[in-house]
Design a binder for these strands. Structure first.
Lengths: 242, 242
DNA sequence: GATTTTCATATGTCTTACAATTAGGATTTG
DNA sequence: CAAATCCTAATTGTAAGACATATGAAAATC
């Protein structure tokens, strides 16, 4: 009969949670300096190593950053989109790799999310976004481009598409999802023929965005989704046989 | 001239990264036991406290779990959707609170994401999903329901809507986004009149899902988005005045 | 006044020790 | 012989103290 949602033990975890709560509740503001490790140790009535373990936990979540020296210490970190984004990619990548997600399910999720911002992108895309999209299409057209570079450019293309929506929250959420899928995408070998098709669809998307045509953008994305999922099925079927 | 993408210092961070890489690369499989802290200390030529700090970093990311006792140690954790989900909520919540995201931008992102899975939900919803949705509508209809409970039920409603899409990757991504917005939603006071309107729109959504009518689901969601954003604008405007 | 030196303070790391927990084997007991 | 008990070894959790190192600021010096 030991249920305990989370063991009451682990002082360092408790302390970390306590400080985390203080940050979430606004009792510790961004940029503010935490008490020194010795002071924290005294406050919580634990030893300094225990406090340090707690601080490392928070540092691993980018909640605090530490600085050495006379005026050093632990400071409440300003969580940037960049950092949050990286964390999300790490988590999502692990999740996908550990839960045997099928290519098909992941693909469906990815394109559903992307199509969510297609209307916004069509409405708000700037010339800079169009230029990025065209540049990636150019990269993808290079002959002798390795599969991984092709996939990376594909990710960059879709990242630009998402960014064109001009909503940073959306970009943060979607870019994480798209990038986490890259390892799965890398498993697919893109033949010359399939590349031509994908590039064609990418061009359709770019054209539709240029015209600010939301419906056409969505339709092109749908075609790309359908084609990508077919491709994935074929590759997996071939692998199962051969 | 001290650029250094990331300080070469911080042994515990290096060790954590090293182990993290091993897990990502598959050199350490799920469930596998890491060497004991003493052995790790020897392998990396550092002291045990340093190793422990590294392990705490990994534990904070749910990458490992530790167990005491004779056969204890650190084990590579199976990252569940649940854990990944919680992490994402924590990160997203912090991100939103620290970056002064406007209610409007967050709302736009949230509904864009939700509308992404509306067609899938309309297609795949089960009776159980419908029952959950109706139950939440019932909760929301209770008189004297505090604002926070109303918001919580709102989150649960949208969570059920997302789950109805039957894609766990999508659920993981979206539920995080929706729940992270709850603190922002809680800032809004819902009048009796606005509740009636929201409940009406929720009913429209449930009805459309029951009919498996994707277009109607999307249209209802769009109306709900529009109304919610109007409401947010009004509340903020009133707050600015009074 | 500008430069160098010193110093105080804080984190980073090591060492050693002990407490707590747990599995499995040894021992005792019925 | 079987079962319950105890013991032991291994491992994490925590503590205390020491030294190393970095860094900003004050003090001394030119």
């Amino acid at each position: 009969m030991k249920i305990m949602p989370s063991n009451p033990a682990d002082l360092s975890a408790q302390i970390a949670q306590s400080i985390r709560d203080a940050i979430l509740a606004g009792r510790l503001l961004v940029g503010e300096r935490l008490p020194s490790e010795s002071e924290l140790a005294e406050q919580f009535s634990v030893s300094r190593p225990t406090v340090r373990e707690a601080l490392k936990r928070l540092a691993a979540q980018n909640l605090i950053r530490t600085q050495r020296g006379a005026t050093g210490g632990a400071f409440v970190n300003h969580l940037s989109y960049e950092e949050a984004h990286n964390q999300q990619i790490t988590t999502s990548t692990l999740l996908l790799s550990m839960n045997a997600i099928s290519f098909d399910v992941a693909c469906e999720a990815r394109y559903a999310l992307e199509r969510a911002c297609a209307p916004l992108s069509a409405q708000r895309r700037t010339d800079a976004h169009l230029k990025s999209l065209r540049a990636e299409i150019g990269t993808q057209s290079e002959p002798d481009l390795p599969d991984e570079a092709f996939c990376a450019s594909d990710v960059a293309f879709h990242r630009a598409l998402v960014d064109a929506a001009g909503n940073p929250v959306l970009s943060y959420q979607l870019a994480g999802a798209v990038e986490a899928m890259q390892p799965l995408m890398n498993m697919i070998t893109f033949t010359a023929r399939s590349r031509v098709r994908i590039i064609g669809l990418h061009s359709q998307i770019a054209d539709a965005l240029e015209r600010s045509d939301a419906a056409a953008t969505d339709a092109s994305l749908l075609r790309l989704e359908s084609y990508t999922r077919d491709l994935g099925r074929d590759v997996l079927a071939a692998r199962a046989k051969g």
